[in-house]
């Protein structure tokens, strides 16, 4: 199967690889996995509490090229968005942007789930404050 040039670009030059301090109250962490292929994806956002805007996003993914590209793209899109806007990102947007073939659609689902998990974690922390 041939990867699209955008997938290859994200795979070879992944954006925003790394991690943010998990215990920072403004950081939300999402850790999700796709059991069938064994992929695991960690995605983190840091939200500016004054504006509600995501000012930093990081990821680390162990999996195939499409999973890495999906999460790399997701972090690019997350920066500068509000939490609400972040939740509007749908896996199909990722599929279209990266031209993912049908067998790799679940990688984009994983990225969407990671975004939701990260934001849910952030909100849980804020409501606990």
């Amino acid at each position: 199967m041939a990867y699209s040039s955008k997938v290859i670009d994200h795979y070879e030059n992944p954006r925003n690889v790394g991690s943010l301090p998990k215990d920072d109250p403004n950081v939300g962490t999402g850790l999700v996995g796709a059991p069938e292929c064994g992929d695991v994806m960690k995605l983190q956002v840091r939200v500016n509490p004054a504006t509600g805007v995501i000012d930093e996003a990081k990821f680390k993914t162990f999996g195939c090229g499409s999973a890495i590209a999906s999460s790399s793209l997701a972090t690019e899109w997350l920066k500068g968005r509000t939490v609400e806007e972040a939740l509007a990102i749908k896996n199909l947007d990722i599929v279209n942007e990266l031209s993912l073939p049908p067998v790799k659609i679940h990688c984009s689902v994983l990225a969407e789930d990671a975004i939701r998990a990260a934001i849910a974690d952030y909100r849980k922390k804020r409501s606990a404050v």
């Binding site: 850790l31 999700v32 996995g33 796709a34 059991p35 064994g38 695991v40 679940h106 689902v109």
Partner: peptide
């Protein structure tokens, strides 16, 4: 799929496994 079909009965155990795997 992903979390949608991930272990359902014990999400705490799943989170721990994911963390260990990561």
């Amino acid at each position: 799929g992903s979390s949608a079909v991930a272990p359902s009965s014990d999400s705490r155990a799943e989170a721990e496994l994911l963390e260990a795997v990561f």
